[in-house]
Write a protein that binds this DNA or RNA. Structure first.
Length: 450
RNA sequence: GCCCCCAUAGUGCAGCGGCCCAGCACGCCGCCCUUUCACGGCGGUAACGCGGGUUCGAAUCCCGCUGGGGGUACCA
């Protein structure tokens, strides 16, 4: 979710500026290198239509596009850092720090080691990590963030950049990769804002030009905490499976933290690209609102052509009876009644399978003598309708209701319940029509004895 | 604890010193339309967190507070 949002902003920015959108997998941690973690990311981006110009699957002039394959570069950079005094070996384990009462940050203990002490530790065979050395006397880093504005940090720590097993850490990898790949704009989640100063220092130490930074505000869950897997909303693919349209998702995500200068909300992709600028991204975190997503999705569904809608439903719900689906779409029965594609199978279920009648509906509409009379009468009349078409069914039912002296609105309710099994369903006359004369009559008769 | 970011209705945004006793959208509540439910139409509800400044004038600038979030890892 969050990463899709950030990816979208990156993509929009690149497309608006005519730049290059690069997909690089940050898998310096073996844990995140697993395909089951990486594949969904690429699948999500593809689903959203966020095509990348360079990436692990398609290559590009600055490959490779997985950090795990760039180890050579990282090692070189570390060596240089060490040689030029911008980094140093550190033998402090977590336990050592705790013993010294260092709860956060680092006390630069190993930075002050003498040559002799270093040799000794080195010879002891105790593994050493490598820390970046914040330049002596440097007390502050100021970053001009394209979204957050001026960010001033005084808390500068000698962070570990290489594990004691020799493998590089994110901090080192991104920085050296961004330099090597000539990345001009780093647009990422605001959760990475605190790590920016050190990256700036690292870049400076390597004598490279700084990229522009833009930190996109985080998306929070309804509980206002950072969206995580635990919210179940993290996987963008679950939205696909529920039947949120990709164009809805893009439009919706774009509006989280950004707005069109026109204030319009239903926007085509072309317009979003044309209007998207970082200075219109605001810096406050936002909360994901499912209701608005649902509304927007319905708007997009209503705008779909019949064929398109039908195919998309079949795509995510292949078991939907195609004939019923086709009729229901052709008659425009379903479009305004669903919020996501996955609602459809349930909504039309009763049209191809006799439903158990909702007990609450039974109690409310079916038990009485009046209801029975209504059902029987209508069943009889319906049975003798010659031409089975909605108009005739409609007049048949309405005439009967009138003759029986029933309420125009409430009168047909028992019929509705008998046909659909519930109090809310697709329009009555079309439903009866689609069911066919025999089945419709049968359902009415069956409902007299519940 | 320390560091950083943020702060307009329930939610998402607009506003970037006077056009704002604050606009739009979702939601919610009425009414209309209607064979149910929806769709649609009309109307309504609801916010500049607090306190100080600056200014002729502040939602807009500054400071403090409060609140929320993020970071504080040999994760990314």
């Amino acid at each position: 979710m969050g990463s899709a949002h950030t990816a979208l902003f990156n993509w929009l920015f690149a497309r608006h500026e005519g730049g290059t959108f690069v997909l690089r997998i940050e898998d310096t941690d073996p844990e995140t290198a697993k395909p089951e973690l990486v594949d969904p990311i690429m699948e999500s981006l593809r689903w959203l239509g966020l095509n990348w110009d360079e990436g692990p699957d398609i290559g590009g002039p600055y490959g490779p596009y997985r950090d795990s394959e760039r180890r050579g570069l990282h090692d070189e950079v570390v060596e240089r850092l060490l040689r030029e005094g911008h980094a140093y070996r550190c033998w402090c384990a977590r336990a050592d720090l705790d013993a010294r009462g260092v709860s956060s940050g680092y006390d630069r203990h190993c930075r002050g080691l003498t040559e002799a002490q270093r040799e000794e530790l080195s010879a002891s065979g105790k593994p050493a990590a490598i820390r970046f050395a914040v330049p002596e006397g440097r007390t502050e880093v100021v970053v001009q963030d394209l979204i957050m504005g001026e960010v001033r940090t005084e808390d500068l720590q000698d962070r570990v950049i290489v594990r004691s097993d020799g493998s590089p850490l994110y901090m080192l990898a991104v920085t050296s990769d961004d330099i090597a790949m000539e990345i001009t704009h780093v647009i990422r989640g605001a959760d990475l804002l605190p790590s920016t100063p050190i990256q700036v220092l690292l870049t400076e130490a390597l004598g490279a030009p700084l990229p522009k930074f833009a930190h996109v505000p985080l998306i929070l869950g309804p509980d206002k905490a950072k969206l995580s897997k635990r919210h179940g909303a993290d996987g963008i693919l679950t939205f696909r499976d529920e039947g949120i349209l990709p164009e809805t998702m893009v439009n919706f995500l774009a509006l989280l933290g950004w707005s069109s200068p026109t204030q319009d909300e239903l926007l085509t992709l072309d317009r979003i690209i044309k209007e998207f600028t970082l200075d219109r991204v605001h810096s406050a975190p936002s909360i994901f609102d499912h209701q608005k997503l649902a509304w927007m999705n319905q708007e997009y569904i209503k705008a779909l052509s019949d064929d398109d809608l039908e195919n998309r439903i079949l795509d995510i719900a292949p078991d939907t009876p195609a004939d019923v689906l086709h009729s229901v779409i052709e008659l425009e029965l379903i479009q305004s009644r669903i919020t996501k594609l996955q609602d459809v199978p349930d909504a039309i279920q009763y049209l191809h399978q006799r439903p158990a009648i909702d007990p609450k509906a039974v109690e409310k509409w079916l038990g009485t003598e009046e209801a029975k009379t209504t059902l029987e009468t209508v069943a009889d009349r319906l049975e003798s309708v010659d031409q089975w078409k909605p108009d005739n069914i409609k007049s048949c039912v309405q005439d009967t209701i009138a003759e029986l002296g029933l309420h125009r609105r409430k009168g047909p309710k028992p019929i509705f319940v008998a046909i659909s099994g519930s109090e809310a369903a697709l329009p009555l006359f079309e439903s009866i029509w689609l069911l066919g004369q025999e089945e419709a009559v049968a359902r009415l008769r069956a409902a007299t004895s519940v």
